[in-house]
């Protein structure tokens, strides 16, 4: 039955549900994009630490990455939100900030490992060819190595970024009203189930778009083997 022919109350319901879900979705998008924008470069910094020639730096950074990757993101969100208040009597005012801090650190740690894998998979011969051709270290990295690394890390990065879409729902653990929580609130208030299926479609579309984007990038870089 087309929407316009539905009884008014159902249509009304649908519109209201959409309005609350959309405001939740806005928060979801915010978490997604800010996390991505900050953790992509931060991850590179962590990679530099975990590949450092200075042994103590490497040990500290790798331990840090192990802790972040070895504990649940949900736990990290809770510790960052409740920790300052309960430990130092300096409560976190903004829940969303706590979520962003936890997400950025967590995703930077994951990205750093993907970068590290990509960098160390470049054959030594590429560096040697650059050296005998008199290229500097930065020319070697930016002109020769970087694009090959990017090509190699696109598949694991796309995996991780699609995971981030769904991980945004963990923000609800400290009552940040993102898409998941706004749907759950509606379910509780109105005793209807369909909003849960409906947000499933949101996540699917979002990750579907990302999949298309990453396929496009992969295709763009298929002109070389390396």
């Amino acid at each position: 039955m087309p929407v316009s022919m539905m009884p008014l109350s159902v249509f009304d319901d649908f519109a209201n549900v959409n309005i609350s879900l959309l405001s939740g979705f806005k928060t979801t998008l915010l978490i997604f994009f800010i996390t991505l924008a900050a953790s992509l470069p931060l991850g590179l910094l962590i990679t530099m630490g975990s590949m450092s020639k200075i042994a103590p730096v490497k040990a500290v950074v790798r331990t840090f990455v192990w802790i972040i990757r070895g504990t649940p993101l949900m736990l990290q969100v809770m510790i960052i939100f409740y920790g300052p208040g309960l430990l130092f009597d300096m409560p976190m005012r903004d829940r969303l900030t706590a979520v962003l801090v936890a997400f950025i650190i967590n995703y930077a740690a994951y990205f750093s490992e993907i970068y590290r894998g990509g960098i160390s998979s470049i054959p030594q011969g590429q560096y040697e060819a650059c050296k005998v051709l008199g290229m500097t270290k930065s020319q070697t990295f930016f002109r020769v190595v970087l694009l090959q690394v990017v090509k190699r890390i696109v598949p694991p990065m796309s995996n991780e970024i699609i995971t981030l879409v769904k991980d945004t729902s963990l923000a609800r653990v400290i009552s940040v009203t993102e898409l998941m929580k706004s749907a759950q609130d509606i379910v509780n208030q109105r005793a209807i189930i369909w909003p849960l299926f409906y947000i499933g479609v949101f996540y699917l579309l979002f990750s579907g778009l990302l999949t298309l984007l990453f396929n496009f990038i992969e295709k763009k870089m298929s002109y070389f083997n390396g």
């Binding site: 054959p123 011969g125 590429q126 040697e128 060819a129 005998v132 020769v144 694009l147 090959q148 070389f224």
Partner: peptide, 14 residues
């Protein structure tokens, strides 16, 4: 002042 040709070419693929 020296140039080297490698056994495995090591061309830049991109």
């Amino acid at each position: 002042s020296t140039g080297l040709v490698f056994q495995s070419f090591n061309l830049f693929p991109q």
